[in-house]
Computed example of a mutant assay.
Amino acid sequence: MLAAEAGASRNTLMAYRGDLAAAAAALGRLGDADAEALKSLGGQWQDLAASTVARRASALRRFYGFLYEDGLRADDPSDVLPRPKIKRPLPRLLSAEEVEGMLVDAADRAASGERLPRRDHALLELLYGSGLRASELVALPRRAVRPGEPFLILKGKGEKERLVPISTAAHRAVAAWLEEAPEGAWLFPGEKAHLSRVRLFQIVRAMAARVGIAPERVSPHVLRHAFATHLLEGGADLRTLQALLGHADIATTQIYTHVDSRRLVELVNKRHPLARQDLKTGNALGD
């Protein structure tokens, strides 16, 4: 159902399978478990992070909801599962200057003509310049970035397609990489298929360390956050950002308003109609 009707990604399907398998190991046959059995999971999960408990409970609620809706059991016992409150953390951030340092170093290394520095430069330009998810980036087909085309069509979470802008710098970096890239189906091939997300994580951290940035501050997702935050600082609106990031719900995108709250206050003071000049005092009402 998750694959055929909800269009869940492979990673989502694997996560659900893992959570259901863990519950089955604790309870036995899940389809026969009653509310009392599900209550016992709360005690077993008490040492887990709230986010992990929420994810496991969500998987089970989805499972029992499916059984109930399809008439495979007469009740849905999942209401007894815990619902921990989760405070969404603010994303870790890199400044524009820090990312620029990584890009300059990557470009300098790529200029040597060596194969792997060219690959790493192309990876970094696409991560920061287009805001791709790690899973989206490593799985790009070899000819995904077409010469002269300012966008690529990407199939992201939930198999939903979106247009992703490709900068001139990214075009140049990818073109240079393709001169050295091994033949195959993937833009960034790995040992067996495409480059793995784990290997991408390692590459990005090594690039950060070379320019004096603490590696633990950097990951592919941090660069995606930097893409979004720096666009917002430059004046992008949330709806545009939502489309570029491929968020299904704008509430997910709204986390960036907390990151850049100072700039949003300035924007209201400058652009809101109530911030116009007061005719009597000559002062801006927003001041």
Rank of each mutant, 00 (worst) to 15 (best):
A134V: 11
K160D: 08
G158C: 00
P89M: 04
E125Y: 02
P165W: 03
L124S: 08
L127R: 01
W186A: 06
A139C: 11
R217F: 00
E216H: 05
E98M: 02
K85N: 12
G184D: 00
A110M: 13
A139T: 15
A208I: 02
S219T: 07
E149H: 09
P89R: 11
L195K: 07
L163S: 12
G156F: 10
S78K: 03
G212D: 00
S95K: 05
G156C: 04
E149L: 09
P189T: 09
L124K: 00
S196F: 13
L187I: 06
V138K: 11
K155P: 01
L132M: 14
L195I: 08
P182K: 07
S130Y: 02
V204M: 04
R162A: 10
P189M: 04
S95Q: 07
R205P: 04
V99G: 02
L90A: 09
P89T: 08
A122Y: 03
E97V: 10
A111H: 01
G129T: 10
R146D: 11
S130R: 06
A139S: 15
A134S: 15
H194R: 00
E159W: 14
L200R: 07
L94F: 04
G113H: 11
A96N: 07
G156A: 04
L103Y: 08
V164G: 01
L81N: 11
E179P: 07
E114L: 13
R118C: 15
A110S: 04
S167T: 12
A193K: 15
V80K: 05
L94W: 01
V104H: 15
P182H: 12
A122L: 03
A144S: 15
Q202S: 14
A175W: 00
S219H: 05
S219E: 09
D108A: 14
F188P: 04
I213K: 00
D108N: 13
R133D: 03
P165T: 14
R199V: 05
L152Q: 01
K87T: 14
G131E: 09
E100G: 15
V80W: 02
G212W: 03
A193H: 10
H221K: 07
P220R: 06
H194L: 11
A139M: 05
P150M: 03
R172V: 06
E100I: 07
R115D: 11
G156Y: 09
F151D: 14
E179T: 12
E125M: 05
A206L: 12
D108E: 15
R109L: 14
I203Y: 09
V99N: 04
A185L: 13
W186P: 05
